[in-house]
Design a protein around this nucleic acid. Structure first.
Lengths: 212, 212
DNA sequence: CAAGTGTACGTACGGTGTACGTCCCTGGAG
DNA sequence: CTCCAGGGACGTACACCGTACGTACACTTG
């Protein structure tokens, strides 16, 4: 009768499903067990704690990044691709994004993107320390963008809600905000992401000049 | 005997204290009530829910940003100042940062920095839509940086821990990572922040050229 | 004085993570 | 075959959580 014999991957997958369907707040060991048709404590035979389970979620999501890195391509294109690959998973697992980002990930799943990025930057001509610095800037921008996209950080357009944040701003206290209510309210996430990404790449290119 | 008569600000302050002392996970209504020497349910006379209390924490922290904006200064300097002011609160309330960032803040405390920033960018010569776009890039970068600084996003140097993330990386699988273990492990947050900030400001300045 | 109002509080309910002990099912040894 | 050891599934139990509800008391107002 037990079609599949319960395992860590199956539990992690159930957790991801649950998060995507009902949000991270809905996650509880009891709920996951129920979704799997299994007793609560059975989970602990495969997962040491809820925290470890969420680590597993982060790792699983992160390891699904599709990297199609072409070492012969222009470094700017490689950076673009890697940044987009990162963003893609946030688009694929929106409600998991916060979980992934807010977890200290020490696994290889977290290290591989770093390795690729450093490789790309060093190929581009950066020294070790410079590559690390530049990478940190990119990570900060990408993480910040994903958080906005996922709705945790303000777009100023409350997610799928009649706009309350900006529309009722007092025009006398906040002339700019209320004057720009329109642009502030709607946000083409992809376009915004690309806009900032291009700005960063171009800025990085300038940094690179002196070393060329 | 009740020295002070219990109020929303007092409760919020207690919550902030608790978060800074023991982390956001330690926050519970019971715990806050105990710290205030008060019954649990008394809190609900001043705060509708725990969620609202955390909103209050976010608002309180955010409203302590010190803005010393000089409208006559160069716009680059104004942007620098505002970005640093934002970062300063994360430095002052490190454990609260995640709470602040992860909360959709629709209060005036959240709108005021936006107003100032838009004002600065428009003074610099940006149109409305462009100002919003540029602002979003800055916010993404700042938020991402603060998260790294606070330790939620990887510095690759696990906060106050013997470095485990990077040191034991397999040199064959991750040559870059293990080769750059040193630079990856230590991170001068202020220098990193400033480095990326300057890159962004310069990139924005380039964006501005065509409109000048 | 009486009535009304708002704050503090205790109790109680349904939920959480998980430590612990018990069952049963399997696989190998004799 | 029997017998036994090991491991996975499970139920119970505990401490803690957020908060709905009812009560008791201090105060203002008439």
């Amino acid at each position: 009768m037990p079609a599949e014999p319960l395992s860590r991957p199956r539990i992690v997958a159930a957790a991801i499903d649950l998060i995507e369907r009902e949000g991270a707040d809905a996650v509880s060991m009891r709920r996951i067990a129920a979704d799997l048709g299994v007793g609560v404590m059975s989970l602990y035979n495969h997962v040491p704690s809820k925290s470890a389970l969420l680590d597993g979620v982060a790792e699983a999501v992160l390891s699904q990044i599709e990297f199609t890195d072409d070492p012969d391509a222009e470094w700017t294109d490689r950076v673009r691709m890697q940044a987009r690959a990162f963003r893609q998973i946030a688009h694929h697992y929106p409600r998991c994004t916060m979980v992934v980002v807010s977890r200290q990930l020490n696994s290889t799943a977290g290290l591989l993107p770093v390795e690729r990025a450093l490789s790309t930057l060093r190929d581009a001509g950066f020294g070790g320390r410079e590559a690390v610095r530049v990478l940190r800037v990119f990570i900060a921008y990408i993480v910040g963008s994903l958080l906005r996209e996922v709705g945790v950080t303000p777009t100023f357009a409350p997610v799928h809600r009649p706009d309350i944040a900006v529309a009722d701003a007092d025009p006398l206290l906040f002339p700019q905000v209320s004057g720009l209510a329109g642009p502030l309210a709607d946000c083409d996430h992809e376009a915004e992401f690309e806009f900032g990404l291009e700005m960063l790449i171009q800025a990085v290119a300038v940094q690179l000049k002196p070393y060329g």
